[in-house]
């Protein structure tokens, strides 16, 4: 039986990609195999059993993973390799596709398949448009993180495959953890999100307090995390960050560029505060206030407090 391979450097992402793989396998009449490289990971879900690639050192770089997967694929001929659309997953899928000379779909959700090909939806033009893309088997694809539920860990047979040693001329000599996010934005019911309208890092606690008074979490636009480093990377919402769907999204000092809106447009209710009456965020909002966040945030906190009393 043909197989749909799932590989991710992260077990939690692997469990999401496995969900996506189930639909592809069903449509294509194939089975899902979760692939491990170097060492078997006990947790990851694998409806069709595990495939363990032996040979490479367990400290795997994207280049090593792609080479190991390609060597195994030349013999075992999977229909498709699915990875998560993470920074590492994108590289692995792209390298694998280049080595195998097969097509690679990017950042897809809503995957479906028939015998010969598979399709998925992806954001293009900064999220303004959704494209349905498709590709003939054999192929590769990265699955949009956050678009599928995680599958529970399962038990299954482990098939082993020796791929030999692989090497990467790029050496990792150090690794430093980024500051971890205190909150899980994906599960937050209320998100207060800070943008460049916030003048300095010292002003963030005010927004953090507003968020917690609303029983919510603090998110931000990309510049605050990626460029200014005021908040950890996993706090930024949008095309290159997380996609969120809270009950309430309150955008504070965010202009509302398409790349940001792409990550929050499915929120139930959107409210925004901006000094510029023409800011595009108002087009994406149910409620808008034109005004200075330095006046409105304290006023909001006061209004919340008087309600609580």
């Amino acid at each position: 039986m043909k197989s749909v391979w799932v590989y991710s450097e992260s077990e939690s992402v692997s469990n999401e990609v496995a969900s996506a793989a189930v639909g592809v396998a069903e449509g294509a009449g194939a089975m899902v195999q979760v692939v491990d490289i170097g060492a078997s990971r006990p947790g990851a879900f694998s409806p069709g059993g595990k495939l363990l690639l032996k040979g490479p050192h367990p400290d795997i770089t994207p280049a090593l993973a792609a080479e190991a997967l390609a060597r195994a694929a030349r013999e075992l001929q999977p229909l498709v390799l699915l990875t998560g659309a993470t920074r590492t997953g994108r590289e692995i899928a792209a390298r694998f596709a280049a080595k195998m000379r097969v097509g690679c779909m990017a950042e897809v959700a809503n995957l479906s398949a028939d015998g010969a090909s598979f399709s998925g939806d992806r954001n293009v033009f900064a999220g303004k448009v959704v494209a349905r893309v498709s590709c003939q088997f054999p192929a590769a694809a990265t699955v949009k993180v956050g678009s599928y539920p995680k599958m529970a860990a399962g038990e299954g047979v482990v098939q082993e495959k020796e791929v030999g040693e692989v090497s990467d001329p790029v050496r990792v000599v150090g690794r430093e953890k980024k500051a971890a996010g205190a909150v899980d934005l994906k599960s937050a019911k209320v998100i207060v999100s800070a943008g460049r309208g916030v003048k300095k890092k010292e002003d963030l606690p005010m927004l953090e307090e507003l968020a917690s008074e609303m029983h919510g979490a603090l998110g931000c636009s990309r510049p605050l995390s990626a460029d200014l480093g005021w908040l950890p990377e996993e706090h930024h919402i949008g095309l290159t960050g997380v996609t969120v769907k809270p009950d309430l999204y309150l955008a504070v000092g965010i202009s509302g560029q398409l790349q940001h809106v792409a990550g929050m447009k499915d929120s139930k209710v959107v409210a925004s505060i901006n000094t510029d009456k023409d800011a595009p965020i108002f087009q994406a909002s149910d409620y808008g206030i034109v005004g200075d966040l330095y006046q409105l945030v304290p006023a909001l906190r006061k209004a919340l407090a008087s309600r609580a009393r």
């Binding site: 590289e91 792209a94 280049a98 690679c104 293009v124």
Partner: peptide
């Protein structure tokens, strides 16, 4: 900025 695949650079390196 328009299609954001992140695939061209690693593919280019492979080629």
């Amino acid at each position: 900025s328009d299609t954001y695949t992140g695939q061209v650079p690693p593919m280019l390196a492979e080629f």
